[in-house]
Amino acid sequence: MHHQFKSPEGPIEVSVAREGDVWSLGHLEATLMGDGRLRIVQADSSVAFAHVAKVGDVWWVHFQGHTFKLERIEPGATDTDDGGGLTAPMPGKILQVLVTVGESVKAGTTLMVLEAMKMEHRIVAAADGVVTAVHFSAHDQVEQGVALLSLDES
């Protein structure tokens, strides 16, 4: 999966691959721990753990005594500010469903994550409301324009 982060020298492209539980980038391999940390195996087989937290658009990472601030460049900013149309913006695959029927959500809450064109798109609630229907579940393929969920706006 591709992500871009800001740096003083310009955007940095990061593509991580996933196979089962193992993520990789070049010679680095990582698995997710139950407590949210990452167990990272480096090229020399040494193991160290990374702590991560996201504040706003910034990923904070602590690794081997260093702390990094990595500001993520949101792919296609319009996808997150599209006024909350709860339809698929393009054909793709549902990655995650983050809400259940009956749940009250606030404006700005991410409801679903869709992967399309190898990019992630967040489906975001445009207003406060209650989820009345969820039409798909994770791993489902969806066509452009289909309704993904229904929200009763309060």
Partner: peptide, 28 residues
């Protein structure tokens, strides 16, 4: 200014990318 090994920086970038891909912030 900190002196940071290239491999450490790469691991940090990977960690951030995994964090985003795996949606770690959403479970927070």
């Amino acid at each position: 200014a900190p002196s940071i090994a290239r491999s450490t920086e790469d691991a940090a970038l990977m960690a951030a990318a995994i964090g985003e891909s795996a949606g770690l912030h959403r479970s927070q």
